[in-house]
Design a protein around this nucleic acid. Structure first.
Length: 863
RNA sequence: GCCCGCUUGGUGGAAUUGGUAGACACAAGGGACUUAAAAUCCCUCGACCUAACAGUCGUGCCGGUUCGAGUCCGGCAGCGGGCACCA
């Protein structure tokens, strides 16, 4: 019984927890609630160490908060739609649904041995018709609220696979699967009107105080607000419809430095001109092609096509400028047209130099003579005073902005305008394995939403993937329907939704996963918001921004309480799990369990291939990935060491927001430590049983000091560990748990004190090592579940010491230490310090210039 | 290119936010126990100098503020992350 066998003990307790339903949660108004959520996984089929880290963190929080007396909601589900299922269908002839549900089953089986305190009763997958049916119903509500619309948009189109590709599926301009040259194609697509909330999404970021600054900044940049002016320019020599050109600028103060104007290749005026101008049409084509290829993006030269049109300066009609169609102007931003001021914009400068356009500096940097100021290679974008600009001369940049803006607006030539980089969210995917968009195309009634009573629109199961394209387009029975409005012949929409839609509201559905409506008022009112959300930083922008949008849209359509408009109160982004890499002499990657460490010196380590003893090159530790083979399977680790060891190791050493390096030595150390905790627990337990007077007497002779010290150490540990868990400093919490273990192990305190300390240790470890803690708890005769026990409270006067040790510095360097009673006043400390022999030595009889005493911290003698 | 972050022993990291740099752990070395191995326990462990006590240097580099700087300020370098021509 002196060895802890995780293989027996962990499943034993997991079974009891499940039978007792201790992790089942319901609304309980008598208790404060706490909703902890980890980003739900994609069911790839295997869990990986990243999952272990993510879900362990969440579980530590859940178990800790639960012990603190909160009613904790800690659910789990599956982000189950998406392309890998379709790829598997094409490769292995399995149905995407069968493949997905099999994977969910497999992953659940791998996840359960981790001993997570999850309410599995709330589990769902986003590909369950019950789930996506409600999503369809909300889509209809949002359509009616004007939050959904259709428009033409360009997509990456793979002409071989007949499918739309996401940007990341385009590699060097080629489709990642087919290798075909990707085309840009205009399709009518569905959009969510996220831009309705641009301003609110931006300003509300400031309220997200418990989000990482990094994520908040990324979201701000993504939304990309800019204030500027729309200016109307008169055109000369333009087609009759186009007498004016609307241009957007954030630098109206530089208008007198203008030397050309430019429009996007997608600008209507460009298309109009191209009708009569073959060369221009060709140029526009080139612009469209180069825009998608990656190498082009990196090296793209700014190119333009000079039109015969002249643009007139609105403030000085004698000045006119050439109008170019240029590849660096985006139709999707501002008005798709700019005026070019080469001296103060790098892009414009590059362009001007290529086409020999004038470079007129109009902002002179401070402390530089305006007559000698020239712009050559670098555009000047800093502050300064205005020059060469008629009535603006002498003003600062900001003053000039205000004046020019006022002047142009008074003349009716300008309009102040705020623009956002954030564009509406295109959700159409021409794919099978996603949530069908619940819309009907009827020749008579037009494009109309499906009736809610007909929901869910379920994906047909009898599809095959042996032809390219979306199988929904070929599924006649599913496609051809009668219009639910007029009863005539109609067709279903075959686009499905972006899978980011599925993950934009799952956190809300967890509050009432079985409800007949997307959410239930009582439940969602009680459980929202998510108090702690935990996941990877790779979702910093899209997923989190879309979820924030959805919370607003759901609130507007009555599915979300107003208080949950920002659904995630606190966000934590955890680092990745890394492992060093191994390659044989042929350069092939090797798995960690295909190599062995041969010898070790202080600085260098040597590995060989297990198969043939040939030397192996050790590479840097990078994120675990199958392609580099630097992966360790959690299931193997649990089998070998147990879940508690994996959990303990994951939480120790590295701060949770940083990457952690998985090492065999580290896991083994964790395992040894847990064995030690068990061994000490068992020893102290047995000692208690065999306790006899003699022994007790002998221990007592060692003095009350030890006894007191362990009690103090124990309560200091309670205090420290609690603070660390509150701050997400799991690695530091574990350091304190090591300290407490060592203190107990070395202590000669009375048996009752040590037993008391062991039980506290088990409780403090419980969030991380629930099985071991539970086993100790039960060994010590407690019939309860340790996870249901209240969190230990530190006794204040036990964590405060009676004496304080002050380091004593001379001129800022530590030279001595002095132990004094806590409440000793400064004067007395000073007297004592000056009597210290080390200090006397330094003073050499003279008087110190100054003595600085910082209460509870330090003494510094200045000589 | 622009924006953001990081840089502490052989290694992961700690340092109460301006107050003893290196907690806790890993690795390494030495010892005890053992016929032996495993397991366990004990000791050493930033560099230099020293028999030892002591001392000197030390938080990427250079400079500054301060009684006192890993922490604040200015400059530089290296590494990592985000964005993609957003006018």
């Amino acid at each position: 019984m002196d060895r802890y066998n995780s293989r027996e003990i962990e499943p034993k307790w997991q079974k009891r927890w499940e039978e007792s339903e201790i992790f089942k949660t319901d609304v309980d108004l008598s208790k404060p609630k706490y909703y902890v959520l980890e980003m739900f996984p994609y069911p790839s089929g295997r869990i990986h160490m990243g999952h272990v880290r993510n879900y362990t963190m969440g579980d530590v929080v859940a178990r800790y908060k639960s012990a603190q007396g909160f009613n904790v909601l800690h659910p789990m589900g599956w982000d189950a739609f998406g392309m890998p299922a379709e790829n598997a269908a094409m490769e292995n002839k399995v149905h995407p649904g069968d493949w997905t549900y099999q994977n969910i089953h497999d992953m659940r089986e791998q996840l359960k041995p981790l001993g997570l305190s999850i309410d599995w009763g709330r589990e769902f997958a986003t590909c369950d018709p019950e789930y996506y049916g409600h999503q369809q119903s909300m889509f209809i509500d949002m359509l009616e609220a004007g939050l959904v619309y259709r428009k033409n948009a360009t997509v990456n189109w793979d002409p071989i696979d007949l499918t739309v590709l996401a940007n990341e599926q385009v590699e060097n301009g080629l489709g990642w699967r087919s290798g075909a040259v990707v085309e840009r194609k205009e399709l009518t697509q569905w959009f969510f009107k996220i831009s309705r909330y641009s301003e609110d999404l931006l300003v509300s970021i400031d309220k997200l105080n418990n989000w990482p600054d990094k994520v908040r900044l990324m979201q701000k940049n993504w939304i990309g607000k800019s204030k500027g002016l729309e200016i109307d320019f008169e055109l000369q020599n333009a087609p009759s419809k186009y007498t004016k050109l609307k241009v957007y600028t954030t630098r109206p103060d530089t208008i007198f430095g203008m030397s050309f104007a430019g429009i996007s290749a997608d600008h209507p005026l460009a298309s109009e001109l191209a009708k009569e101008d073959k060369e221009l049409a060709e140029f526009i084509n080139i612009c469209r092609k180069t825009a998608t290829t990656e190498e082009a993006l990196e090296t793209t030269e700014k190119i333009g096509y000079a039109t015969p049109i002249r643009v007139v300066n609105p403030l000085d009609k004698t000045k006119t400028y050439p109008l170019y169609v240029a590849n660096f102007i985006l139709m999707g931003y501002g008005t798709g047209a700019i005026f070019g001021c080469p001296a103060h914009d790098q892009r414009d400068l590059d362009f001007a130099q290529k086409y020999n356009l004038k470079i007129i500096p109009v902002v002179c940097p401070p402390d530089i003579n305006e007559n000698s100021f020239k712009v050559e290679k670098d555009a000047y974008t800093g502050p300064g005073h205005i020059i060469n600009s008629e009535f603006l001369n002498g003003l600062s940049v900001n003053e000039a902005k205000v004046l020019i803006s006022k002047t142009l607006q008074e003349k009716g030539l300008g309009l102040e305008k705020t623009n956002y980089r954030l564009r509406d969210w295109g959700i159409s995917r021409q794919r099978y394995w996603g949530c069908p968009i619940p819309v009907i195309h009827c020749p008579k009634c037009g494009t109309i939403p499906e009736k809610k009573k007909n929901l869910p629109i379920v994906l047909p199961h009898d599809v095959n993937f042996d032809q390219p394209g979306n199988p929904l387009n070929r599924h006649k029975d599913w496609l051809n329907i009668t219009c639910s409005e007029c009863g005539g012949k109609a067709k279903r929409e075959t686009d499905t939704m972006d899978t980011f839609v599925d993950s934009s509201w799952y956190f809300a559905r967890f509050t009432s996963p079985k409800a007949n409506t997307p959410t239930l008022k009582n439940e969602i009112d009680y459980w929202m918001n998510v108090d702690q959300y935990i996941g990877g930083v790779e979702h910093a922008i899209l997923h989190l921004l879309y979820s924030r949008f959805f919370a607003r849209a759901m609130q507007e359509t009555g599915h979300m309480p107003k208080k949950a408009i920002e659904p995630f109160d606190a966000l934590f982004t955890q680092g990745m799990v890394c492992h060093e890499t191994y390659r044989d002499q042929g350069g092939n990657w090797l798995l960690p369990n295909e190599v062995k460490e041969e010898k070790k010196s202080k600085t260098k380590r040597y590995f060989v291939n297990l198969k043939n003893n040939s030397p192996v090159e050790v590479g840097p530790s990078i994120k675990m990935s199958k392609s580099k083979k630097n992966v360790v399977d959690p299931t193997d680790i649990i089998e070998q060491f147990g879940a508690d060891t994996a959990r303990w190791f994951m939480m120790s050493d590295s701060p949770p927001e940083r990457d952690v390096e998985w090492t065999t030595a580290g896991v083994e150390a964790a395992w040894r430590h847990l064995q030690k905790v068990w061994r000490i627990s068992f020893k102290i337990y047995s000692e208690g049983l065999t306790e006899n007077n003699k022994k007790e007497e002998k221990i007592a002779l060692n003095g009350e000091i030890n006894h007191d010290k362990l009690l103090r150490d124990t309560h200091k540990s309670i205090d420290n560990v609690t603070k660390c868990l509150e701050n997400f400093s799991f690695n530091k919490a574990i350091a304190h748990l090591y300290e407490l273990t060592n203190a107990i192990s070395n202590s000669k305190a009375k048996i009752l004190t040590r037993q008391y300390s062991i039980k506290i240790l088990a409780q403090l470890m419980q969030p991380v090592t629930p099985h071991l803690s539970q086993e100790i708890w039960s060994l010590y005769g407690s019939p309860s579940f340790i996870s249901s026990e209240p969190w230990p409270q530190p006794i204040t006067n036990l964590i405060e010491d009676e004496d304080l040790t002050y380091p004593v510095q001379v001129n800022g360097k530590k030279r001595a230490e002095i132990v004094v009673p806590v409440d000793l006043d400064a004067e007395a400390i000073e007297t004592k310090v000056l009597l210290l022999p080390q200090i006397k030595n330094f003073l050499n009889g003279s008087k110190p210039k100054k003595i600085i005493i910082v209460r509870g911290r330090i003494v510094n003698v200045v000589i």
